[in-house]
Write a protein that binds this DNA or RNA. Sequence first.
DNA 1: CGGTTCGTTGAGATCGGTCAACTCAAGTGG
DNA 2: CCACTTGAGTTGACCGATCTCAACGAACCG
Lengths: 224, 224
Amino acid sequence: MPIQLSPHVPTRPVRSGPQPAMRALGGPIDMMGAPVAFARNDEIYAEGEAADYVYKIVRGTVRTSKILADGRRQIGAFYLAGDMFGLEAGDEHVFSAEAIDESQVLVLKRSALVARAARDGAVAQGLWTLISRELSRAQERVLLLAKTAQERVAGFLLDMAARQGAGDTVDLPMSRQDIADYLGLTMETVSRTLNGLAGNASIQLLNARHIALRDIAALQQMNA
Amino acid sequence: MPIQLSPHVPTRPVRSGPQPAMRALGGPIDMMGAPVAFARNDEIYAEGEAADYVYKIVRGTVRTSKILADGRRQIGAFYLAGDMFGLEAGDEHVFSAEAIDESQVLVLKRSALVARAARDGAVAQGLWTLISRELSRAQERVLLLAKTAQERVAGFLLDMAARQGAGDTVDLPMSRQDIADYLGLTMETVSRTLNGLAGNASIQLLNARHIALRDIAALQQMNA
DNA sequence: CGGTTCGTTGAGATCGGTCAACTCAAGTGG
DNA sequence: CCACTTGAGTTGACCGATCTCAACGAACCG
């Protein structure tokens, strides 16, 4: 069994020897670092902490978040298996990161990556791709936040579906509250909107966390 | 006189020999590229165009924007004198760029920059800083868009004031519509909010495009 | 002086938020 | 096995911030 860390306790990465799952991944980056397991809601790093590590998800889902001065929470991003996260613009984390479900994560020393990047053009290229993708996502997000609740939810579903690549059915490991804080809506509005989309047959709620996209064209129309 | 290009016509960068203003700037990047002048509302590059050039503003102000499928316009960012823009995640521009007022811009070939970056660590560092700053701004923006109209406007004024560095008075070269499209509000709401802030003495509208910040603490409070 | 663009102001409509009750599924322990 | 708890999600009624539509004012320019 992977190491389980207790919930809600800020944790430091813990070395625990390579796991079989890690060898299944491609690319030189995967050959570095220690795989660490996190339980549901475990904190991977905290806001304001030194950004000394970069992470790659082997299994599970991670969210980054930030508590605003007025107590509201903003989700920075969701990361799925295969995604990397934790590389920030500055040398301090602007968001905190938590596991959404049972997750296994490779922990890479940032300094080691940067050192390799100086020698190895492919690694440098990889870092550039990584931060470029973060920028693209953030820009997408800005566009999304300018839209109506229905458009935001539709766009979110399409984005998740594309990232999961599993046909027209979407798996939502995160709660309605997580989605709401990501989209800048309330939980109630997310719920109503999903049920509204189900009402006009654009989607079908197989259950709360599992959704079938029935009319992708209609969803893309909304996502415009 | 700088070259004047007719409004609303997509333009290619035009060589026109170094101008005195360019030599006043520091750093190796400033010694490259051709300064080009743009008139109010001139397009510097279009959405979807190849991102072959990177730009540095010598004088003036630039906005990047994108027309959504439903006809609404979203402003990507405002760039002031000294700022660089046009470096995108992909090799195609996601936004278009237009001059807000009479502007003078250095045009740098992206490939030349990248080539220099491979040899010169300082240039590579500069590119990294540039894209990092873009990412930070985009993230800031996401947080801003989760707030009320008053908070967005207050945050915008504080941001502009900080970037202009000219004490507690802010110069707004862009129209109310530009601000609205940047903040995800309507022009009317921006206008009402500014006049509301003036009403409670947080700011003073010297004129429509020139604002004095009278109670920065109150504005920061809103910006929370 | 007339036209044009930009900004302001008003009145009413609406989308999404707030507050609150209810359902449902998954434990947990007696 | 059943009562109880707990957390997530749904649903309803009401409210308010922001949008929409429209008129008006002000600055600028030929």
